[in-house]
Simulated assay, not measured.
Amino acid sequence: MAYRQYTSCVQPINFVGATVVGYTYLLGILGLIAAAFIAAYAVPGGSSLIYTLPILIALFIALIIFLLWWLYDRLICLGGVVCAIGLVEGHNHPPDLTKAGDDDYTINIFLAGGPTDIARPKQEFWDGPLGDLVAEQPAILQIGLHYGQNGSDLNHMKMLHCEFEGSGIRNMLIWANLTLAILIAALVLLLAAGPIGYIIATILWILAALLGLGEIASYFNPLDVGSPSDVDHNKGEINRGDLVIVKGDWIYDSLHVGWNEMHAVHDCQVILRGLNFEDPWPADIGMGLGLDTPDRVKAAVKFWCDMLNNATIAQTNGNRDDPAQNWVVHPAIDGCSKVFIP
């Protein structure tokens, strides 16, 4: 199965997230000022829509800019697609109403070869064979961003946070764009089309309100939440204590005080289930692989990562695209000749 991804990351040198967020609120303030002028001078004594439509238009413009930042500028690229093996500490099922429409499914993993006790100092986690994935990155520090030093932010620097993307924020952006277009059309009709324009503008206002109710409802029942089943329908539930191999984009999430993530997860497979956090990393995880030394951890990650990459190549460029498989009745009747591609 193909993973879903609605976000993209930017290179550290191109990151302007803080500026974009500042402009978002500045634009909202300027829009409110413009709305006041329109209400006071454009149509004195006019409909209450004259007062509310410009304000809503300004707020929706600000919201759209913020959502664009969330999807396309918030995440900072660290090193492309990476693989990691780790022990699942916990997971979060969407919807989580505290995340304002973000319906990604998340897991946190202790990286193989490192500590599995969250109380240990962060440096011990960074010194593990895969510790660079959660450690502070010079490229992030050089552009003036920071990493968490306490609480849950610090915990995210000891475990790798992995996200299977849902469509919640993308859907919200679609809703905001559509609603903005309706509000602008309503304002134009109200200002230029007389009594008939007022009637149509009122209808559009009601339509925008109904769209808003639909968006609120999606918080409680999201359309396409993130799920590990996006990459494998046969995976089943991922539980605390499962040993997993994950592959995805390695990024820094600037929305928080700061930590590294795998976002979005491209692939995830459960290697073993029900391990104990107090036990040492297993010396046998199958196929002659183990996690009991740093070298064996790196060898296991390479083996599994190569397996995932080969599976992806087979799915996207393999037999499915072979002309010999292009048949409907039976390959002996309406199949094509096999073509060998060097």
Rank of each mutant, 00 (worst) to 15 (best):
H93Y: 07
N239Y: 01
F66K: 08
V339A: 09
G258F: 13
I203V: 15
G86K: 03
P331Q: 07
C83M: 04
L289P: 12
P54F: 04
L211G: 13
D102R: 04
K298D: 05
H156Q: 04
A324S: 11
L243D: 04
P94N: 07
D102C: 01
L145K: 12
N239C: 04
N14F: 08
L111P: 00
I50W: 11
D279W: 08
Q149T: 14
L75P: 01
I38R: 05
Q142Y: 02
N276A: 10
I118A: 04
S152G: 07
D230F: 02
V43E: 15
G45N: 15
L211W: 09
D321M: 03
T202N: 10
W304L: 05
A193V: 07
M262N: 06
G79V: 02
V328T: 06
L207T: 14
Y51S: 02
G241S: 00
D117W: 00
W175E: 04
E215L: 10
P195M: 08
Y3H: 15
S227V: 02
Y252S: 01
D334V: 15
D242F: 13
V339N: 10
I38L: 14
P138F: 09
K122R: 12
A2I: 03
D306N: 07
L291H: 11
P282G: 04
V20K: 03
S48F: 08
D224A: 06
A193W: 12
P342R: 07
Q11D: 13
D242Q: 13
V188P: 02
C305N: 12
I143A: 00
I271D: 02
E261A: 12
L190D: 03
P294V: 10
A209K: 10
Y252A: 00
N326V: 11
I333C: 02
H330W: 12
I65C: 08
I341A: 03
I50E: 06
G241N: 00
E261F: 06
N92S: 05
E278V: 04
L207P: 05
I196Y: 11
G236T: 12
V81R: 15
T116I: 00
T293S: 15
M262V: 14
W259Q: 02
A62P: 01
C83G: 12
N14E: 11
P44W: 10
L223I: 13
P94R: 06
A283P: 06
V16T: 06
M287G: 00
L27F: 12
I341D: 09
A185G: 05
T98V: 07
L27V: 10
A192Y: 13
A186N: 10
H91K: 08
N221F: 03
